[in-house]
């Protein structure tokens, strides 16, 4: 219930109406959105019980490893009610045709399998918020100072997921496992998304804000 309370408000892409439609506009919109959503994610992480008790260095390491998984999981959850569309933001819903015209097809095709996977599981909001916190705590950063403290954070979030499933899904005793078994696909998808944006950064045609660049650099 605490994770539900700290869940951030809806986010809006607000594409620049003065820019001509196309590849540059679509990516400029997404990079600006990602930068603003990262600020929100950092604020959200601080409210996860136990996260702020970690050292500042470990908080940074977890976020630097997991930020794209969290961004992707947010997009995926927003898209669960749609058919083959991705809800990047409340006002930025992209179908395959739009994705093709705006140079977002690779990203679109990379994220959709994850949407299908969670649709099949009928993932609920309670499960989504818990899984998202688990993804952050389970980011496999190689730079963790206090491994025991991070393990305690993982354990408490894992326990929250088990409690949730114990209370709501007595008909499927394997549901916790099924949800956790989606995390490899989430990591794979986030890796593709990082690669996508990293190559855009290298091409240098799309403006990127500093935080987004900083987080991309941490993944380089």
């Amino acid at each position: 219930s605490h994770l539900l309370v700290i869940e951030p408000e809806k986010i809006y892409a607000m594409p620049d109406p003065t820019m001509p439609d196309g590849y540059i506009k679509a990516l400029t919109t997404l990079c600006d959105l990602a930068d603003r959503e990262l600020v929100v994610i950092i604020g959200w992480a601080k409210h996860i019980p136990g996260f702020s008790s970690l050292s500042l260095a470990d908080q940074m390491s977890l976020l630097q490893s997991a930020w794209m998984e969290i961004l992707v999981l947010n997009i995926v959850f927003r898209s669960l009610a749609c058919e083959e569309e991705l809800v990047y933001a409340e006002d930025y819903v992209v179908d395959e045709e739009h994705a093709r015209l705006s140079g977002l097809l690779d990203l679109h095709v990379a994220i959709l399998p994850l949407v299908r996977r969670y649709k099949k599981l009928s993932m609920e909001k309670e499960e989504f918020v818990t899984l998202k916190a688990i993804a952050l705590s389970n980011s496999d950063s190689t730079h963790i100072e206090n491994v025991e403290a991070v393990q305690r954070l993982q354990d408490s979030l894992h326990e929250a997921l088990q409690d949730l499933e114990g209370a709501h899904n007595t008909e499927d005793p394997r549901r916790t496992g099924k949800l956790l078994m989606t995390l490899p696909l989430l990591r794979q998808t986030a890796a593709k998304a990082v690669q996508h944006f990293y190559s855009i950064k290298v091409q240098g045609k799309v403006p990127m804000h500093k935080l987004f660049l900083e987080m991309l650099e941490a993944k380089a």
Binding site: V39, I42, G43, K46, L56, L63, L211, E214, E217, A218
Partner: peptide
Amino acid sequence: KEKHKILHRLLQNST
């Protein structure tokens, strides 16, 4: 750490 100064600053902010 100097390279990640915005993340560092946002984590230190109390809000």
